[in-house]
Amino acid sequence: MAPFRIEVRVMPRAALLDPQGQAVEHALHALGFPEVRQARVGKHLVLEVEAPTREDAAARARAMCDRLLANPVTEDYLLAVDGGGKGA
């Protein structure tokens, strides 16, 4: 078993209205950042896990996302797995 650090990015689905993102976008415009064409707000989760291999860690993390961390009706997610091997 080796330690892995999994970062999960959960974002509202692109097709759905993201009122938080819009509010941030408007605030940035008001602060003098007119170059912002779009802002979207999601969540960033960091998990420290133990797994035999990087692939196992990623597969387990996908299962966690599918069951709990993201709602497939309203959200998409991306995973990044770090660690394992080189004493990371």
């Binding site: 509202p12 209205l17 009122p19 938080q20 009706v73 309203t74």
Partner: peptide, 17 residues
């Protein structure tokens, strides 16, 4: 009930927050 999959769809932040 939506999260449990007993009903279709989901509920998100109000459009005007």
């Amino acid at each position: 009930l939506c999260e449990a999959g007993l009903l279709s769809g989901g509920l998100m932040r109000n459009a005007r927050l």
